[in-house]
Design a protein around this nucleic acid. Structure first.
Length: 875
RNA sequence: GCGGGCGUGGUGGAAUUGGUAGACACGCAGGAUUUAGGUUCCUGUGGGGCAACCCGUGGGGGUUCAAGUCCCUCCGCCCGCACCA
């Protein structure tokens, strides 16, 4: 340091950051009191799963949340900014199986590690509200919610075909099956018939869909994904009479269609292999039974579905066409009909549905076009291999002929509603949703036990409130596949709460998405004796700003929206939508490094040389050259992670926080690079030098006389930046706010010490501008801000200082410089009084040499003056 | 297949929503300071041209006094859903 030319010491983040973190802790600065009278603001980042260690990629969304929290605190709000742990789940059990550690110990150790790592980052979190979802104090309340939902009819137990993950040996929700594979294990998912617990989310299908329109501070993308997932479609349920009923005796076959306008083009009926009539027929037909068996084995992956041939089996049954006298339609079992949607049966209209057309062509069924492009020649219009799906003109359909598709839909609906078949109208209007009920049963240990006791006499009996929580047993083994709780020798044994006879505890635990569906409500009163303190929850909720990854666009966010409604119905909350504002942040990505033998290497073990295309990477230990791979999300598996300690130890948390929000817009990915971190750190040091150099001048600043020109200019810059930065932070445009602060610092640093000594007003302006600058960087770089504040001799903590007010006087300008265009091209600039009239500006513009030159002596055709913006002379 | 988004210098990106394109940063080049490297400071940096100027926001076309921004069309990339009747 002695060789440093600069007289000031370098800023040492390691000691400074630790110091201020201690000060904040000692003062309990970020504790949030529910009784605080100030207006409330709830900012929340999606809480983490305690997987082991945190890497810097995890911390970007907490940094964003922290900037918002610190800013809103400075703006005078009582800010709730809590943190907890989404602590149940399979990885804990995997660790138990692999490393012989208890899931509980593994989880709580990880929490301790990760909490310490988060603390290094200096987040302004109210740690007094911390909880983990695996705390019995938390899941006890979750069990209470389950029982209340059960009592309210929002829980059902039913047999259903479920997605079975053969590796995790558990059931998965539809949302957890990605491309036919388990979302966590990656195993090919199988279909199994099991009795399961379900939350009746479908009860709210319409409401969940409608309310999306009210979520105006959610990204459009997420709203769209949820709309598609809920998947509403309007149509007609039509009852087709069997010519000869099947042996089950059903007189009619019910189908759902969104295209009743194509009814005259029907040429067959198709049943799902899982349809009861299919099963009935299979009893008497071994070949059909074999066909159904085959269908069940068919893969459910996207590829399997795409390449799967449309296949069917003729049951021999026929139904009567509802409106064509004497027309009979054959009934097939077909592999492409889903039991889960509609009624599990369809009518096939080959002309206007591609699947039906493929099927009809394969089995030689008639193809009758009933819609043609408007004005086409019906005699010349035919369909061979491409179904016609667009709107047009109805043909070959008796009383529908000539109508448009929407008109035909209405006409056929009215007609069928007024026909009776087997004692009921032939058709009824119906709305169907893709959304399925949420299966929450998991055959795993490390989850919230479902508080039910099965009794031979009384059935499934809720555990009485007084007996909650139903605790997970601690003595558990993981020596064989399947559900470990089920293998416990005694845990299952429990007497029926109703009749007292010996019963059996439910051994299923809840899907971990249940845990995260209401934690935001628990944070508002984490010590409450009931799941929520209703008053506190109503006060705080909805969350004003929720921040998390796009990967939760459907699962977590939809479940939370359902839970909030269910908690409303059961009296735990008085609102329906949990998150008023949602922001989906981009990830931190990093290049990957790979040895010739395929082994990934962590950035810390890699040395880089060269620039751009010539960059080379070497393994530090061996000196061997490595392959530099593409930018990828930081992940354990590719080892492209950087730990917070690596950064806080040398550069400091502020540098990391600043860098993560610089350059890239927050919704996009940011590339973590050493060069970028160093750049951010250089700025930290530049701030420090500027503050240190200004400190003596600031210390001497006094008086309140007339402002010099230089002082006014500096104040204008500061206030203009303040206004812009405030708006940027409120709009979460952190990268832009940072760019503005980059631009302001040279204005401050550029104040000449001697001039300022001679000009007291400039010294005062410098002092004020520095204060504002420090306050503006504080949300992103809180430690540096505190240290600068102290070095300038300011009172108290920046973290407790109100956000400065923009002084309108400094935003006003006496003169403005307007660009002057001739025929739309900029040719000159014009400086005029800011309140100059349009005529004055026009005259001044026309006198400019450049304007005259380009007008070439001709009079202008038109002059457009946009006040405060631009002048355009049209020649 | 259906739905949505994006395309701006060598790079990340900005552009007050139709009004000076390239703010700010990274990188690079030159210079100063330094025994040297790093640090720090200054200058330059979209392309072409000696210059006046010309060209320029994926390509083409259009609306407008004025287009990165609006409209049409084509190309490329990314994401989501996917046998939903």
């Amino acid at each position: 340091m002695a060789s440093e030319k600069q007289s000031t010491e370098r800023y040492n983040p390691r000691t400074v950051e630790a110091h201020w973190q201690r000060v904040w802790d000692e003062r309990d600065l970020y504790r949030c009191d529910n009784d605080d009278p100030r207006p409330k603001y709830y900012v929340l980042e999606m809480f983490p799963y305690p997987s082991g260690r945190i890497h810097i990629g995890h911390t970007r969304n907490y940094t964003m949340g922290d900037v918002v929290a610190r800013y809103m605190r400075a703006k005078g709000f009582n800010v709730l900014h809590p943190m907890g742990w989404d602590a149940f789940g399979m990885p804990a059990e995997n660790a138990a199986m692999q490393n012989k550690v208890h899931p509980k110990d593994w989880t709580y150790q990880n929490i301790a590690t990760m909490k310490a790592q988060l603390k290094l980052m200096g987040f302004s979190i109210d740690w007094s509200r911390e909880f983990a979802t695996c705390d019995p104090e938390y899941y006890a309340h979750q069990q209470k919610l389950f029982l209340d939902f059960l009592a309210a009819g929002l829980v059902s137990r039913k047999t259903a075909k479920v997605n079975w993950d053969p590796i995790d040996q558990t059931v998965l929700a539809n949302e957890q099956v990605i491309d036919g594979k388990g979302w966590r294990s990656g195993a090919e998912v199988e279909q199994r018939e099991l009795t399961q617990w379900f939350f009746r989310i479908t009860e709210y299908s319409q409401d969940l869909l409608d309310a999306i329109d009210t979520l105006d501070r959610w990204p459009e993308r997420v709203r769209l994904m949820q709309r598609n997932w809920i998947g509403r479609s309007e149509g007609l349920r039509i009852r087709f009479e069997f010519e000869t009923p099947p042996s089950s005796g059903d007189p009619v076959l019910e189908i759902f269609t969104t295209r009743p306008d194509t009814l005259f083009g029907a040429s067959f009926m198709a049943l799902s292999p899982d349809h009861p009539v299919s099963a009935q027929c299979a009893k008497e037909n071994p070949e059909l039974a074999a066909f159904i068996e085959q269908c069940r084995r068919m893969g459910t992956t996207a590829e399997a579905i795409e390449t799967a041939e449309k296949r069917g089996f003729d049951t021999g049954l026929t139904v009567r066409h509802p409106v064509v006298e004497g027309k009979l339609l054959p009934v097939y079992v077909a592999n492409f009909v889903l039991m889960e949607y509609g009624t599990g049966a369809i009518f096939g209209c080959p002309g206007h549905d591609q699947r039906d057309l493929d099927f009809a062509n394969k089995y030689g069924l008639p193809v009758v076009p009933v819609v043609m492009p408007k004005g086409a020649d019906p005699a010349a219009f035919s369909i061979t291999t491409e179904a016609f799906l667009e709107d047009g003109e109805i043909i070959n359909s008796e009383f529908l002929d000539g109508l448009s598709v929407p008109d035909a839909k209405e006409a056929i609906a009215v007609k069928l509603e007024n026909i009776e078949v087997a004692g009921a109208p032939q058709a009824a209007r119906e709305v169907n949703f893709r959304l399925r009920d949420w299966g929450i049963s998991r055959q795993r240990y490390w989850g919230c036990p479902i508080p039910v006791i099965h009794c031979e006499t009384c059935g499934a009996v809720p555990v009485p409130d007084a007996d909650l929580p139903v605790r997970l047993p601690d003595d558990i083994t993981f020596d064989r596949p399947g559900n470990p709780i089920d293998h416990h020798p005694t845990w299952k044994n429990a007497d029926c709460p109703k009749c007292g006879k010996p019963g059996r505890r439910e051994t299923d635990t809840m899907d971990t998405f249940v845990d995260s569906s209401w934690y935001f409500a628990r944070f508002t009163a984490p010590q409450a004796a009931t799941p929520t303190d209703r008053a506190a929850a109503n006060d705080w909720l909805p969350v004003d700003q929720y921040i998390g990854g796009i990967e939760h666009a459907i699962l977590h966010l939809l479940y939370s929206r359902f839970f909030t409604r269910a908690m409303h119905r059961t009296g735990h909350l008085d609102l329906d939508e949990p998150f008023a504002g949602l922001f989906t942040q981009g990830m931190v990505v990093h290049e990957t490094y790979r040895r010739a033998d395929g082994e990934w290497l962590a950035p810390a073990d890699v040395r880089l040389e060269g620039h751009d295309a010539d960059r080379k990477a070497y393994e530090i230990a061996s000196g061997k050259e490595l392959k530099i791979g593409s930018l990828e999300k930081m992940s354990k598996s590719k080892k492209n992670t950087v730990g917070p300690e690596e950064i806080t130890g040398s550069y400091g948390a502020d540098t990391a926080r600043w860098f993560m929000l610089s350059d890239s817009p927050p919704e996009r990915d940011v590339e973590w690079s050493d060069a970028g971190v160093e750049g951010a750190h250089r700025f930290v040091q530049r701030i420090w030098r500027t503050v240190m150099a200004a400190a003596p001048i600031v210390a001497g600043a006094a008086g309140n006389g007339e402002m010099s020109e230089a002082a006014t200019v500096l104040m204008r810059e500061a206030h203009r930046t303040l206004k812009a930065v405030s708006e940027d932070v409120e709009g979460l445009r952190f990268n832009v706010a940072i760019a503005r602060l980059h631009a302001l610092l040279p204005q401050i640093a550029g104040v000449d010490a001697d001039t300022a000594k001679a000009d007291p007003s400039l010294a005062r302006a410098l002092s004020a501008a520095l204060d504002m600058f420090i306050q503006m960087i504080a949300p992103v770089m809180p430690h540096l801000a505190e240290e600068c504040w102290r070095r300038l001799g300011r009172e108290g903590l920046v973290a407790e200082t109100p956000w400065p007010d923009v002084e309108a006087a400094y935003l006003k300008q006496d003169t403005i410089t307007l660009p002057v265009q001739v025929n739309g091209k900029k040719r000159a600039e014009l400086t005029v009084a800011s309140d100059a009239s349009g005529d004055t500006i026009e005259q001044a513009a026309l006198e400019l040499d450049a304007v005259r030159k380009f007008l070439d002596g001709r009079p202008p055709k038109k002059v457009i003056v946009v006040p405060g913006r631009i002048v355009n002379v049209v020649g």
